[in-house]
């Protein structure tokens, strides 16, 4: 690890000013991914600007039943928050499906969004990787790619985004609030992460010097559920996962939010499936048709075609469980 300066910011504005004044600066929150990558030589910084103690550590109810989550709220605190457990169970479940108890105690909301892919080639500076070293190539396309993308990948990069939390946020239609040198702005979380295209070195639409200040959830649309398939029962990244929010009225899908994890360079909001579902009967057959409408676009690599069927099964299971719950409540 190369030496670096360290400053602690006391306000979001000060953090943004410090960043602008210091070439080679990086924001440090929980550090569970950044410090690891700095040890590996994947990331480096001339200055770390510590934003972990900023007054962004609150979960607050907003107008109309919305919920505003501070960027520095720890993953474990967010998962345990009564409003999240009660009104957005998919978010609590996704957070608890990720990492370990120790890591969730340290990792923050913003840091979870900013974590980098766990692609083996990205994490090994001894190997080529277009994301880490643009133009050096992507050995994963022909190499070890069982865990990598089946949707939205490019000739340059087949990495997946590793977050569980972000998949739930995508299904919930959350908004990411940012503060940068040019002021505040907000992005739908589904547009926050990008597809690799020819610029895989860019994970997100974040502009240089912008700081995540909060994530905002709209009022809950209906019951929600997260399900994750992985190689171990606990403490492993997703092979595929599904987050869903479903509003069923009189046996018909009135509203739905559906997102896949572990399949793409970003949490995959399943817009095609949602379109099929709106107004459709809340039946397993309709759910399978919707999943197929989304996954027909999948382009699996040599060793990860199993993910497509896995994601389809998860989607049908999760939507069926939510529909059964709605039917039970109506009975």
């Amino acid at each position: 690890m190369k030496p670096f300066a360290y400053v602690r910011a006391h306000s979001p504005a000060e953090a943004v000013q410090e960043y602008a004044a210091r070439p080679g600066a990086r924001f440090l929150a929980g550090g569970t991914n950044l410090i690891d990558l700095m040890k590996l030589g994947v990331e480096s910084a001339q200055t770390l600007i510590d934003v972990s103690r900023l007054p962004l550590d609150r979960v607050e109810s907003g107008p109309g039943g919305a919920l505003r989550i501070g960027a520095a709220v720890r993953n474990s605190d967010l998962a345990a928050h009564p409003a999240v457990r009660e009104r957005y169970p998919v978010l609590s479940q996704a957070l608890l499906a990720g990492a370990s108890g120790q890591l969730r105690n340290v990792a923050t909301t913003a840091g979870n969004l900013m974590q980098r892919t766990r692609c083996l080639y990205f994490q090994d500076p001894g190997k080529p990787c277009n994301k880490r070293l643009p133009g050096s190539g992507c050995p994963a396309i022909e190499g070890v790619h069982r865990d990598l993308a089946v949707l939205g990948h490019s000739e340059a990069c087949v990495a997946t985004h590793p977050s569980d939390m972000a998949v739930a946020l995508a299904a919930l239609g959350a908004t990411v609030h940012l503060l940068g040198p040019d002021g505040e702005r907000a992005l739908p979380v589904a547009d926050f992460h990008r597809l690799p295209g020819e610029r895989p070195e860019r994970d997100t639409e974040l502009r240089p010097g912008e700081l995540i200040t909060a994530v905002e959830l709209p009022p809950p649309m209906g019951p929600s559920l997260y399900r994750k398939a992985r190689d171990r029962a606990s403490y492993a990244f997703a092979l595929a996962s599904v987050a869903a929010v479903l509003d069923v009225r009189d046996g018909v899908v009135h509203d739905v939010g559906l997102a896949f994890g572990g399949l793409a360079h970003r949490p995959w909001r399943a817009g095609a499936a949602e379109t099929v579902l709106l107004g459709a009967p809340a039946t397993p057959a309709a759910f399978a048709q919707a999943a197929d409408a989304e996954l027909v676009h999948a382009r699996p690599l040599r060793d990860n075609a199993f993910k497509v069927q896995l994601a389809r099964n998860l989607a049908v299971d999760v939507l069926s469980a939510l529909a059964a719950r709605a039917a039970g409540a109506a009975a």
Binding site: R8, T32, K39, V106
Partner: peptide, 26 residues
């Protein structure tokens, strides 16, 4: 030394954490 095994777990202000991923200065 990468937050994967848990053998470095300590309590920071009463909460368990992987000490290998925490900078002392922070």
């Amino acid at each position: 030394d990468h937050g994967q095994c848990g053998s470095c777990t300590v309590l920071i202000d009463g909460r368990r954490a992987n000490s290998c991923l925490l900078l002392a200065v922070a």
